[in-house]
Design a protein around this nucleic acid. Structure first.
Length: 443
RNA sequence: GUGGCUAUAGCUCAAAGGUAGAGCGCUUGAUUGUGGCUCAAGAGGUUGUGGGUUCGAGCCCCACUAGCCACCCCA
């Protein structure tokens, strides 16, 4: 990765080929689940971006260099920091033209003005799927989206991702049963368990105004973690708190957990420490992390948001969605050297240029190959063949084509050195060489 | 936004106040249209920017800029 402007990653072509392969795979998986594509504009009115309490979100605001001083403040537009808020806005605006339930996928960049760090960027790709329904969105949607999330991340050639599940209703009901008033603040602190540890969370909870008993209860709740729904139920019940919202959240969590685990028992657990920072979530919340890279931040996440989009009158437009951090995942697997593109260009064949007089002949070979879908390029200048082959070698182009007189062409596999007569109208490369492959590198 | 660390060739890094260097990469040649290996030669630097201390600064001091790490927060 090149980082001439911190947080705004730029990739060399070889790495961009990997990124494109990721995007292709994700898109294919999303479409397998029947999500339809959507692209929203890069900007939203700032008040839309801020509407859901994201006041401390680092939003890039748009301004024109040539704006007149007496012009009305047009700093009303900002770059979106995720794809969920723009989607909810889009649905709110276009609900008359859309058929519910709306299942859409969206793979776009998002921008956040936070300080960059390992795995954290100011400009990055996200890949989202969401469902928004009119009136009531059943809990089965939560289950479906988490299954889809699991399938998509597992279709990518990346280290194993474990999905951590929780439910905001469960936490909020528990907190209310304890008489806690500042739910948001308590959620925020509880979310830090993996970062500051149990003692740290306990101290912060007490500092926020909780009594020692309440803080201990919150902590005990947060440390519950299991892949088994019955165990979760027992351990929550053992804490002795009762509240309708708690029961509702527990039932939803158990439903989703059991549903996903029937297919993938090892990759998903209920983890009551997951709270999520974004405060528009109202029920299911989910975070995915590399199972064996505990210090690396969340690579995918999502949740249920019942109040982000607004219907006409009293009608609700509840939604559920998940998001995959493409740039974050990519930066890690590339930095670790786990993956690489099989070559640095789509070209499968380099057609050599013998001299200027026969340039047309080389072009004709390339044309014939392209007619049959074989990506190729003609070398620029009639350098000696050693240079032309060296260029192919550096680019990872597997074949060099030598035009001959009277159709006596030859093609050379520069990996093996084998060279043999070939006809541009019929020769084709082995299937595995046709297009760039993404290769997993053994350490 | 807060705190700490860093900045020398394209990359990774040396040079302990006294003439800026290595490895890799790049170019050329040995190789007469056929690469990789080897050997030889070569190109490439106002040491991030600006100021200061000193006979003398890549090195010490100050400011700025940028990068990295942690916090905040998060994909």
């Amino acid at each position: 990765m090149l980082t001439s402007e911190s947080g705004f990653p730029e990739w060399l072509p070889a790495d961009r080929l990997v990124e494109q392969a990721f995007i292709d795979t994700i898109r294919q998986q999303f479409e397998l689940y029947g999500f339809a594509p959507l692209e929203t504009r890069a900007v939203e009115p700032v008040d839309v971006l801020l509407a859901k309490g994201e006041t401390d979100k680092e939003i890039y605001v748009l301004s024109r260099l040539q704006a007149d001083e007496d012009e009305p403040d047009e700093a009303s537009l900002g770059l979106h920091f995720d794809l969920t808020v723009p989607f909810a806005r889009f649905v709110t605006e276009n609900q008359g033209r859309l058929t519910f339930p709306i299942r859409r996928y969206q793979i776009q960049k998002a921008w956040r003005g936070e300080r960059p760090q390992a795995g954290r960027f100011r400009e990055f790709y996200q890949a989202d799927i969401d469902i928004i329904e009119r009136g009531d969105l059943p809990i089965t949607a939560d289950l479906e989206l988490i299954q889809a999330l699991h399938d998509v991340v597992n279709a990518l050639p990346v280290p194993r991702v474990r999905i951590h599940l929780n439910n905001r209703k469960l936490l909020e009901g528990f907190y209310r049963a304890l008489g806690i008033e500042d739910i948001q603040e308590t959620l925020r602190i509880a979310d830090k368990l993996d970062k500051v540890g149990a003692d740290g969370v306990r101290a912060m909870l007490i500092e926020s105004g909780l009594g020692e008993a309440a803080a201990d209860a919150c902590l005990a709740l947060s440390t519950i973690q299991s892949g088994d729904a019955a165990t979760i139920r027992e351990r929550v019940a053992a804490l002795g708190q009762t509240h309708d919202l708690l029961d509702e959240g527990l039932a939803e969590l158990a439903f989703v957990l059991e549903g996903v685990r029937t297919a993938h028992p090892d990759d998903i657990i209920a983890d009551l420490s997951i709270a999520r920072g974004l405060d528009y979530y109202t029920g299911t919340v989910v975070e995915g992390k590399f199972a064996d890279i505990p210090d690396f931040p969340t690579v995918c996440s999502g949740g249920r948001y019942d109040n982000l989009a607004a219907g006409k009158g009293d009608e609700k437009l509840p939604g559920m969605g998940v998001s995959i951090g493409i740039t974050r995942i990519l930066s890690k697997v590339l930095a670790e050297g786990h993956l690489r593109a099989s070559r640095r260009t789509p070209s499968c064949v380099l057609v050599a240029l013998v001299d200027e007089e026969t340039r047309q002949q080389s072009s004709a070979v390339a044309y014939a190959l392209r007619q049959r879908g074989i990506p190729c390029e003609v070398y620029n200048t009639p350098d000696r063949f050693g240079k032309q082959i060296r260029y192919a070698d550096r680019m990872g182009i597997p074949f060099v084509w030598f035009p001959g007189t009277d159709g006596a062409d030859e093609v050379k596999d520069i990996r093996s050195g084998d060279q043999s007569p070939a006809d541009p109208a019929s020769w084709e490369p082995p299937a595995e060489d046709w297009h760039v492959r993404i290769e997993e590198v053994e350490p």
